[in-house]
């Protein structure tokens, strides 16, 4: 995976980001002033009140929406156009109904170049690992929500992204499926040394998977608090992480932050 020696620039740095939407004659300030760093191999979660600008933040970070001021640095440089090797996942799976599971997964490779045997095999292996063996050549119309999000996850991971940007991709799933998918994601992210910036409404999820949790204020948003999460070496197991005594302390502290800022 990505070789990041000591002193190398972190994959993603946001510096004093601000974003104001210009809606005709009204200006809507959404992000006031936000800075953070995502280091190689790190998982950072962002929680904040509904409508505070989390999705906007993600869109600014990956270049879909231009920032009003401040900068986004990928490996220390501001990219021309879209940053490379970024995987972006939303709550909606956005599978294309006219493509089979497999060709949904190979979409990114198809856009970048040609899809041959090798690319298809890679996609197949990933779908197998995510428990979709036997469904690769089916259309998504008949898939369950969990299966669809697995295909979306495979579509994201197959391009070897260094940095994953998640906007609550598992929020709509039932609790058990959600836990399983989170565990899979964390395993696949940590195994391969990727980094993950994850937006969520679920504080327990944030604490259980993250190295750091950033709590945002209401709109226009800024960082209200930052928690370094250290649960011992138990991040690998989602349920065990939740048993750790410090887990509850973190959850309670973040709850209090969000209550004060008023959801």
């Amino acid at each position: 995976m990505h070789q990041s020696g000591p002193g190398a620039a972190p994959p993603l740095v946001a510096e004093r980001l601000a974003k104001t939407f210009d809606d005709g004659d009204v200006e809507v300030p959404v992000i006031a002033d936000l800075s953070f760093t995502l280091n190689a191999g790190e998982i950072v979660s962002i929680v904040g009140p509904s409508g505070c600008g989390k999705t906007t933040l993600l869109n600014v970070v990956c270049g879909l929406t231009p920032a009003s001021s401040g900068s986004v640095l990928w490996h220390g440089a501001a990219p021309q156009g879209m940053p490379g090797r970024v995987g972006y996942m939303l709550q909606k799976d956005m599978l294309l109904p006219w493509r089979t599971a497999l060709s949904n997964v190979t979409l990114g490779m198809e856009i970048k170049g040609k899809v041959g045997m090798e690319e298809r095999d890679k996609a197949r292996v990933l779908l197998d690992r995510l428990g979709l063996h036997g469904f690769t050549d089916r259309y998504p119309a008949t898939f369950s929500g969990g299966m669809r999000q697995r295909v979306a996850l495979a579509r994201t991971l197959v391009n070897d992204p260094e940095v994953l940007l998640f906007d609550e991709p598992f929020a709509a799933l039932d609790f058990q499926t959600k836990l399983l998918l989170e565990a899979d994601t964390v395993r696949l992210v940590r195994e391969e040394g990727r980094s993950l910036l994850c937006i969520t409404h679920d504080i327990e999820e944030a604490v259980s998977i993250s190295d750091r949790v950033i709590v945002l204020t209401k709109r226009p948003t800024r960082a209200k608090a930052v928690y370094e999460i250290d649960l011992g070496d138990q991040h690998a197991d989602m349920m065990e992480a939740r048993q750790s005594p410090r887990f509850n302390d973190h959850v309670r502290a973040i709850w209090r932050d969000l209550e004060v800022s008023g959801t």
Partner: peptide, 13 residues
């Protein structure tokens, strides 16, 4: 869906 277009853009389309 504009989000779908965004997805394509993040894939470099």
């Amino acid at each position: 869906d504009p989000d779908q277009i965004n997805l394509f853009r993040t894939l470099g389309a």
